[in-house]
């Protein structure tokens, strides 16, 4: 039996009187790549922010790594924060630090290991995400968009997290880089035994890397499960999303 790492129950989110989620339920199991899909404005980013404690849900229960986030004491929150890595949509690297410092920042702050070991870790993580060691001393403004994403992924991986959250990891990348990035994510999952939660629009990623997914619509989860289960569901968004040309080609040719 797979172990659930994240469980969201009856989640409600409101901004003023704008209801974004009204009774969202989903479960993410250990070791899977879980996609969060939905139309623009359906609240994907918002739900991700709620999972990583950047936003407090209006009501409902969010359990991550076995801990209920609602009313979790400060210490527990801090401990949880060291157990996951987050890749923001635009990288969110610290612009006044070099790439190496960006990757090392959590290690320096949260552990007491020696500087030379930190350098080794930084170098290894850079190699893992496929960046040249030369970029270590550059600043984020000196990198291309794809390199920023890779560097941000290296930073998210710095502490060997059990959980990795990605917000639209391949958006803004060209198809080749996007595919490389997808492969990289799958590879890292297999190597490090990560559980990955990703918000995505990318039809290729959905077919090739995502194991299970939730589709948000009408303020709820309209479908949850593997790609084959999800496409069975009769919902306008799902028909539209998976009925488009690119998706049809994908479905014909399988994974």
């Amino acid at each position: 039996m797979k172990k659930p790492l994240i469980r969201v129950e009856n989640l409600v989110t409101r901004f003023g009187d704008h209801v974004v989620h009204d009774g969202v339920n989903l479960t993410i199991y250990e070791g899977e790549i879980y996609g969060i899909l939905g139309g623009s404005g359906s609240g994907k980013t918002t739900i991700l922010r709620e999972l990583i404690m950047l936003h407090e849900p209006t009501a409902g229960r969010v359990t991550v790594l076995g801990h209920d986030l609602g009313g979790a004491p400060r210490e527990l929150r801090q401990r949880l924060r060291t157990q996951w890595g987050v890749l923001f949509q635009f990288g969110a690297l610290f612009t006044s630090l070099t790439i190496a410092e960006n990757i090392a920042v959590k290690l320096k702050e949260y552990t007491r290991i020696s500087d030379s070991l930190i350098d080794d870790i930084v170098a290894t993580k850079l190699e893992m995400v496929g960046l040249d060691l030369k970029v270590a001393s550059l600043y984020p403004s000196e990198l291309s968009g794809g390199m920023v994403k890779r560097a941000a992924l290296a930073r998210a991986l710095a502490m060997d997290p059990r959980l990795l959250f990605l917000d639209e990891p391949t958006s803004g990348l060209d198809p080749i880089s996007a595919e490389q990035f997808d492969n990289l994510i799958v590879q890292l999952k297999n190597l490090l035994g990560l559980t990955i939660v990703m918000v995505t629009h990318d039809i290729d990623s959905i077919f090739t890397v995502v194991d299970r997914m939730a589709v948000l619509g009408d303020r709820k989860v309209v479908a949850e499960g593997s790609i084959n289960e999800v496409v069975q569901v009769n919902h306008p968004f799902i028909r539209q999303f998976f009925g488009g040309n690119r998706a049809m080609i994908r479905r014909k040719h399988g994974k």
Binding site: A100, A123, E127, M128, L133, S137
Partner: peptide, 8 residues
Amino acid sequence: YKKERALP
């Protein structure tokens, strides 16, 4: 992934 090269 660990290459002999160190960080510059």
